[in-house]
Design a protein around this nucleic acid. Structure first.
Length: 297
DNA sequence: CGATCCACCTGTCGGC
DNA sequence: TGCCGACAGGTGGATC
């Protein structure tokens, strides 16, 4: 499910219910997800107030009032949903979804808002590639999973000059470099494919080929930076992409999937005006890449 | 060190 | 229908 736009959408959905709320109780229903839960997981969360809900790359981070950080990753199939404490769901009705997947509800946080409203935040993850870990107070940026992360693809820090510098001399395919979280943090398979299409760049070309002399920016690196930023911004605006049963935390579907140009569109005409190519699927590093071999060079 | 590949786990879909 | 294989949004860790 979740690349940066989906995680950001989840964050925005949870934030109004979480920030300022107190964790009244924690139900941890199995010993592990991808990793074992930390020692005293429920105990250390119970009674804490949530001060902030942050996103870094594809990680959600809850900042607690004792300085502890809860690092949460959704893996491929993780999701959060919000329920009122009286068992009705808020604000939409997704009993069907709940019935279908209750066996994969792994963590339940009972929250008490400042106005006294009680809610449950439920983490569901069929494949269990997600995880929850603690960052001890003051150690978030030194955490092994966080410290190596590259630049966020949102905002002005990502530009053609930075991309050229990051990718210079890299022989790996452009696709692989874009998925490398140590370089740019938050892109996944969907948005990498979409960004390369927008930039008219082939996933197969060596990453270093977008850099100029001594890693200088080029027209290609500028195009790629603009494409990444625009596709991420557009996807966040759309509430992410709903594939399978991904939903926003409020139960709404994201709808960016309707805007895919190439992802999961093998065999369809390239949507670029004037291009007569066909969207093609290839496999790179064991993962599908969708692109147009005619206009992406 | 950097670059590659696999493993982790469940659900779904298409083909026969 | 049912069965089977392919594939799915990610990434840590093993191996070279």
């Amino acid at each position: 499910m979740p690349e940066l736009p989906e995680v950001e959408t989840v964050r925005r959905g949870l934030q109004p219910f979480m920030e300022g709320a107190t964790i009244l109780a924690v139900e941890q229903r199995r010993p592990d997800l991808r990793f074992p839960f930390p020692d005293r997981f429920a105990e250390r969360l119970t009674g804490r107030r949530i001060e902030a809900v942050e996103r870094r790359a594809k990680y959600l981070i809850l900042h607690l009032d004792d300085g502890l950080g809860l690092i949460s990753h959704l893996g491929m199939s993780g999701s959060y949903r919000i329920e009122q404490d009286d068992m009705s769901e808020t604000p939409g009705d997704f009993k069907h979804e709940r019935t279908k997947s209750a066996v994969h509800d792994h963590v339940v946080l009972q929250l008490g808002a400042r106005d006294g409203t009680k809610r449950r935040i439920i983490y569901n993850d069929p494949r269990r590639f997600g995880f929850m870990l603690f960052a001890e107070p003051g150690e978030l940026n030194a955490h092994p999973l966080i410290k190596g992360l590259g630049t966020e693809p949102t905002g002005n820090r990502l530009d053609g000059a930075l991309l050229a510098k990051l990718f210079q001399n890299k022989a790996a395919p452009l696709k692989s470099a874009l998925l490398d979280q140590r370089l740019i943090a938050g892109l996944g398979n969907i948005y990498v494919c979409e960004a390369m299409w927008r930039a008219e760049l082939s996933p197969l070309r060596p990453a270093g080929s977008i850099a100029g002399e001594n890693g200088a920016a080029t027209e290609a690196s500028e195009r790629l930076a603009a494409a990444i930023r625009s596709v991420i911004a557009d996807a966040i605006k759309a509430g992410g992409s709903s594939l399978k049963d991904y939903r926003q935390a409020d139960g709404e579907l994201g709808y960016f999937q309707h805007s895919f140009s190439v992802y999961d569109r093998e065999g369809t005409p390239c949507p670029r005006a004037g291009c007569n190519g066909t969207v093609t699927r290839i496999v790179q590093s064991g993962r599908s890449t969708f692109y147009c071999p005619v206009c992406q060079l």
